[in-house]
Design a binder for these strands. Structure first.
Lengths: 204, 204
DNA sequence: CATGTCAATTGACACGGTGTCAAGTCACAA
DNA sequence: TTGTGACTTGACACCGTGTCAATTGACATG
């Protein structure tokens, strides 16, 4: 055993590796983190890392799960899921996901960089994005049930658009490249989403 | 001499390399194209490529200029620049750029992949994106001059948003991942832009 | 004809990063 | 005592980029 699955095993070292990876990825925004660096920071030899994770991609993927656990990615969605109206749900989802991005940005970027060359990394990333997409779908669906979804878009297309709006790349571009503070990012995305998806005028 | 600048030199081989690079990058959507492959397709040795381009990044950058020349990136902007109203200008710009993306996608993706690790590639890419941004700025400016820009956004912020909407990544996501046909991409982006940027109701 | 120059060739090599393998150490347990 | 399991060290293979030296062949100029 001793591999990439979430089996219970001597936790000590394994989690020390995950912590190390996480720290380095966050600190460097996901760029230029080698197996050597992670091992060094975990206080073990590079080869020992491979005793726990068969591959760099496997380690990165495991790191995302570790992160989710740490940061409670699930609990964050509660407000969105319990929202009464579609509008509230949309807002709550944008807020939950939008504020999660900066926390996962380092590891996300590293995974994203491997996506083009590494099959496993691609699958893992696409999985995560599929999860996120389900949130979008649910928010759009709630809006639709309230008869608040603009007739300009089918639910499917609206989901595609919201999903794209909320991509990690767009967050990067707006906050890092354009220099927007996080609050403005959240605020603007909420208002854009309302403007795009919510029916104009008051529904009959 | 014989390097990365656009100086005139024995064209034959140099352009054969560029053609080869272009072809491979387009065919593979920018993934997994090595110096060896390019050399082979150009019918020369790998080392000979370095007689013309000092570095892989330099070659990719030169390829973008070659592409622009081939596809007439400048002429494409004429309709946008000569548009009478801000609205027309916005539409024309989205159409011009949006239809240019699929043609540059292969090389764009390759350059984008190097952006994180290669300084020169990063600068080159950011340059191109800055050019594109100027188009966004001009379109928003024209809208503003017509008093058609929604008061929800300052011209600067509107430019940031349009620039982000029109990113290559977003095109990728909508067309490739979501499976949108190109026409729908163009149509939807036009209508989104109107909805986001154009003042609601008729201006007083 | 001799000379030089220039593009290109071949073959070898360094570097950096990932992943593998073999042998050895050290602690803890049956 | 013997094993077992986690870990170490050191060496090595693979890949792709970039470099270097020596050679070839064509073409031009004296």
């Amino acid at each position: 055993m001793s591999s990439d699955n979430p089996a219970v095993e001597a936790p000590e070292t394994r989690t020390r590796i995950l912590k190390a990876a996480l720290h380095l990825l966050e600190a460097s925004q996901g760029r230029g983190v080698r197996m050597t660096d992670i091992a060094k920071r975990a206080g073990i030899s590079r080869q020992a890392v491979y005793l726990h994770f068969s591959t760099r991609a496997a380690l990165l993927i495991a790191t995302t799960y570790y992160l989710d656990e740490l940061k409670g990615s699930e609990e964050r969605l509660v407000p969105s899921r319990t929202a009464q109206t579609g509008l509230e749900r949309l807002d709550a989802f944008i807020e939950a996901w939008g504020n999660y991005i900066p926390e996962i940005h380092g590891i996300a970027k590293a995974l994203l960089a491997m996506r083009d060359t590494d099959e496993a990394a691609a699958v893992a990333w696409d999985d995560r994005m599929q999860d996120m997409r389900e949130g979008c779908e649910a928010a759009i669906g709630a809006l639709n049930r309230d008869n608040m979804l603009s007739p300009d878009h089918s639910p499917d297309q609206a989901t595609d658009i919201l999903w794209t709006m909320l991509s990690v790349r767009n967050w990067e571009q707006l906050t890092i490249e354009c220099g927007w503070p996080q609050e403005r990012y959240i605020g603007t995305l909420k208002s854009l989403a309302r403007r795009i998806f919510v029916v104009k005028g008051t529904p009959g």
